[in-house]
Design a protein around this nucleic acid. Structure first.
Lengths: 205, 205
DNA sequence: ATGTGTGAATTTATTCACAGCT
DNA sequence: AGCTGTGAATAAATTCACACAT
């Protein structure tokens, strides 16, 4: 079983591998990856050793192969099905970004306001919020990007749960109710800045 | 010295306290906070015990007091000085959100494109990117919200470093170069979704 | 010679359990 | 009686160090 912090680091590593010019550098050592990611080389090797098939014992990692193994073990190749709940400016931005790459399958967008749904242009099917549970179930949505107004988080969480959604990327400023057992990653502007501020303060002392 | 994971949880706790109706509930027990945050009661008590002055031994926490102590110990009361680098749609959104509350002192916005600077309406002073180091130094900016295009991250990071900025909230899709020793929190749409996807996959097995 | 893979050692974080306060 | 605060016990993650592959 791979430790959760290792899982996060592996995703960071994947991001860094993506940034590499695959043509220019076919191989990368753990030391080189350390310089790119900031993750110490030994931690990084340990993390990679959790994968089903790590590198080939001796010699550097073959970038392409490593990415393939990461995609495999981390389940990235499956194109997980994702929706966007809340189509304000931020939600629309997320929708656009998600559509700009093939990585995830963007299955639906939801908003409480029907006008928004009619006025928004998108390749993705848009629905009023109350249809969320039915649509999510019918289409097998696994992940949601939560960009609703703070006041709607509670109701939306309940609907996502009814729809069988398992993981939430929470862009709102409030806490996703924990009782549903979602896997949540929170990305609140203020909370993240607070953590940074607290870190600075802690470093000083 | 307070462990870093504890620090993050304390910030989450602070967020949840904020959400409480302070008039309605003056006191909160660790158990009640568990229900709100999802953090187990004993973890939460331990975390709070790291603070300079935790609660009053017996009885529940006084919400107002606990928030005050958190603000104190986490350095939130100082109104840390923050800037936004990159004034595309996301950057402008962040700028607006930051200005809507008094919590941080929003000191400046930066963009490579001078037209953007002239056309954007904001209470905050806006500058072209090359002035970043000088302005950041002159105004004592500590934190930056990084919302530039992916291709500009490297150059911007160098400028932030020259400006004496210590922490970065990274909204871009690429890694902030680690060599400057920034305290970074990354909030990349794709990377976060990948972590969620990997988590689901790991849970299945 | 250089660089990975991994068990063992060490460090760090979480959980427990209970003394002490209200 | 109920709840916090915290040292001690447990669990988890990181770092080390070296065998082994290229």
């Amino acid at each position: 079983m791979v430790p959760k912090p290792a899982l996060e680091r592996l995703c960071r590593i994947y991001t860094s591998l993506e940034e590499m010019d695959t043509a220019a550098s076919v191989y990368a050592s753990s030391r080189e990856l350390e310089d790119m990611t900031g993750i110490p080389a030994h931690t990084l090797r340990k993390d990679i050793s959790y994968l089903d098939q790590p590198g080939p014992g001796g010699g550097k990692y073959r970038v392409e192969r490593l990415m393939a193994v990461l995609e495999q073990t981390l389940g990235l190749k499956r194109r997980p099905k994702v929706c966007v709940a809340g189509l304000g400016p931020l939600g629309q931005l997320c929708l656009k970004m998600l559509c700009s790459r093939r990585e995830f399958e963007v299955v639906a967008g939801f908003d409480a306001n029907i006008n928004v749904i009619e006025l928004t242009e998108s390749d993705v099917d848009l629905f009023p919020s109350y249809e969320l549970p039915a649509v999510a179930r019918a289409r097998g949505i696994e992940l949601a990007v939560l960009t609703v107004a703070d006041g709607e988080v509670e109701k939306t969480a309940a609907r996502l749960y009814d729809g069988g959604v398992r993981g939430i990327l929470n862009y709102t400023g409030v806490t996703v109710p924990p009782e549903y057992g979602f896997d949540v990653r929170s990305v609140s502007l203020f909370e993240e800045l607070r953590i940074l501020a607290a870190g600075l303060r802690a470093a000083e002392k």
